[in-house]
């Protein structure tokens, strides 16, 4: 049987980044219908389109590395060419959202939620210049643990995020602060850029966060993107796998 599940990579920039993860799901359902892509529906009393999203992107963050997996109606999937699909989807998406690539998935490929192990972020922060930020980042990374507090089901939990900070460096000054690049793990839970900034001493304030990559670790040393896009691969250069 030929593949009917397609993985799509898309970006989210500008005004549309203020939509929520749930909003984005609805936007995709409607964009797929406008593009006349035959999506498969779940069976049962209340059929739902079979679309699976990866990690949620916080409202307000931008990204060049968002993903979704779409099950196509087998009767209508044959003959669909991924390049045409990408163009049709971009035309149907709101301004600021662009379909970047699409590829057929082999049967049995693990879900995005399950497979993705880390993300590379570009983080703009206020409260320090590049030198100060480098210094506090270095001290933080040298520590055995990085404790952050977060509210969970109404009570405060303390988490050590140090194991999930896979790489982090200060890239330089920007007009309103400082720019960091960091690779943050997603297992057992995704560490978010503001948590990294809050764990520094003194803490930095988040201005903007932009997801550059999502990564799937293939073994202890190797990693790959769920769907690579050639011209973007430079963005996270200089960081260790």
């Amino acid at each position: 049987m030929s593949a009917t599940r397609v993985r799509i990579r898309f970006s989210k920039h500008g005004k549309v980044r203020f939509t929520s993860h749930r909003d984005v799901a609805r936007i995709w359902e409607r964009a797929l219908r406008r593009a006349r892509v035959g999506v498969a529906y779940s069976a049962g009393f209340s059929p739902r389109p079979k679309i699976a999203f990866g990690l949620a992107l916080s409202t307000g963050f931008s990204s060049d590395a968002e993903y979704l997996d779409v099950d196509l109606d087998p009767d209508r999937a044959a003959g669909i060419d991924t390049e045409t699909l990408v163009a049709a989807l971009t035309a149907s998406l709101p301004a600021g959202m662009t379909a970047m690539a699409a590829a057929w998935l082999a049967p049995g490929e693990p879900s995005l939620q399950h497979a993705v192990t880390s993300c590379t972020w570009r983080i703009d922060a206020a409260g320090a210049d590049a030198l100060e930020a480098s210094d506090s980042l270095e001290r933080a990374l040298a520590r055995g643990e990085l404790l952050v507090q977060r509210e969970r089901k109404g009570r405060l939990d303390t988490d050590d995020i140090r194991p999930a900070v896979l790489a982090a460096e200060v890239q330089g000054n920007i007009t309103d602060g400082v720019r960091l690049i960091a690779e943050l793990g997603t297992k057992p839970r995704a560490v978010r850029p503001p948590e990294l900034l809050a764990s520094l001493d003194p803490p930095l304030g988040l201005l903007r966060a932009h997801r550059l990559h999502q990564w799937i670790a293939t073994d202890g040393l190797q990693r790959r993107e769920p769907l690579a896009v050639a011209e973007l691969s430079v963005a996270g250069a200089g960081l260790a796998p």
């Binding site: 005004k15 549309v16 203020f18 406008r34 709101p94």
Partner: peptide
């Protein structure tokens, strides 16, 4: 709900 201020509707 910042999305209510951005416009951009289809």
């Amino acid at each position: 709900k910042p999305a209510r201020y951005i416009g951009g509707e289809h």
